[in-house]
Design a binder for these strands. Structure first.
Lengths: 238, 238
DNA sequence: TATCTTATGTGGGATAGCGCACAGTGGGGC
DNA sequence: GCCCCACTGTGCGCTATCCCACATAAGATA
């Protein structure tokens, strides 16, 4: 398989000091991440951690009755598999590729070893985990207090930040699953956004026309997550 | 001040190997934790980490418009101040004492030092942080999908697990703030639970009469959090 | 004991989102 | 070029929760 991306296009890998990067390079295995790909199931032992490059992965919780809710989203700014470094064998969420692309993976045992022995790697991954905690926190808040239209804006922006382009391939049905709401609700909210000229969509393709407008319509939850990330990973550090 | 509890009554402190415990003991400072005590505000630099013994602390997010939502709750099973070890100076939540009691605190700089140099301490605190992530995750899910009555059951059970007795001192107004709902909603839900003989309350005092019944009425979210904790901290390890 | 404060109970109208049913439609497969 | 299926649009009744206003009551205070 030919991967047209360097692992360093993932921000975590890219932020590694040269020495650590040279150590890790041989352990990073390129992987295709097709849409719908399940990286791990709840309760299942995590065998790999994943570093997306241009794919987006959703951490999705599925309840006993089948209802679902996205807890957080991971793109090239992060890593899928934080429980590995936190000392847990498993996750209570399913990790599923929400936007197809490529990434790199590393064996859990190796990552654990690196984490334990290399302080700069440990520090980097812990800071990322803290950013993820902020995102999960804000998901909880947003689920409680924000109306669907705002939540949709937040969701679109979070996805957009993790893509190179301004178009997402994503049906309203799938978005509804992520947000844990009805498909019809997404149809209505997306219709409003389209009328306002913020987005344009048709049959599984959503084009963002006015990013700034979306940010204005969104609740504060998006900005909180973004600012925390920027605080933990100041651009100068890269 | 005379503190009638040992730091080891906090489960994390209690789980430390003897050697580590002896190192830490002189750095642990007893603190009273009165009701409503604010341990830290969002954005404020964390100067101490807190290990509650018989107090309960809520991690509360407050939105720009004043709406609030409890993200997680910490009692003698855990620590307040996980961002310290994760490499963040601040938290996006307010930490406020929800049930008065005692605890111990340690300076952030010292904790950070211990975390970096003592693997057994690091492992313990990371596993706790993972348990906290699970709790936050479940809060997000619960906020999305569970009805108020179930959420109230979950909340009562989480509090009960962190207390020695079966009575909480807590008005419906305060519970409403934690759950991020109206006070009237709590009145209604609590009224139902009382009619069913599960609890009895009056003017700020809630007595749990039938714990098993509450667990049945609760959504799955409570059990998920509890089981994850038990998995990360198997009773035998203590 | 009288009063006052704080906690709890209740009701009515508004609204967001759900569940269900079904209608339209566009694009890919044949 | 046609058809079909997946995606989207829409309507309707229902429920949980919200917002607001006010009634009641239990304990604290004097």
């Amino acid at each position: 398989m030919d991967i047209p991306y360097s692992p360093r296009k993932n921000a975590l890998i890219g932020a590694l000091p040269m020495e650590e990067w040279l150590r890790l390079i041989s352990h990073l295995e390129p992987v295709a991440m097709p849409l719908g790909d399940v990286l791990y199931e709840p309760g299942q032992v995590l065998r790999y951690a994943y570093f997306p490059v241009n794919a987006i992965v959703s951490l999705l919780y599925v309840m006993a009755n089948g209802a679902s809710a996205e807890i957080a989203v991971v793109g090239n700014e992060g890593m899928v598999g934080t429980p590995i470094i936190m000392g847990s064998e498993t996750s209570s969420c399913r990790a599923v590729t929400q936007s197809a692309g490529y990434g790199f993976r590393i064996r859990a045992s190796l990552l654990k070893q690196e984490f334990k022995t290399r302080p700069s790697i440990a520090s980097l991954l812990l800071r990322y985990t803290q950013a993820l905690i902020t995102q999960i926190t804000q998901t909880a808040v947003c689920n409680r207090h924000c109306v669907l239209e705002q939540q949709l804006c937040r969701w679109l922006l979070l996805s957009l930040d993790r893509l190179e382009c301004t178009e997402l391939t994503m049906t309203q049905e799938l978005i509804a699953n992520m947000l844990g709401v009805r498909r019809e609700g997404v149809t209505e909210a997306a219709g409003k956004l389209q009328k306002q000229g913020l987005i344009r969509y048709s049959r599984g393709h959503i084009k963002i026309l006015d990013r700034a407008g979306l940010e204005l319509k969104s609740c504060e939850c998006y900005q909180v997550v973004r600012r925390e990330y920027e605080k933990l990973f100041p651009p100068r550090a890269f």
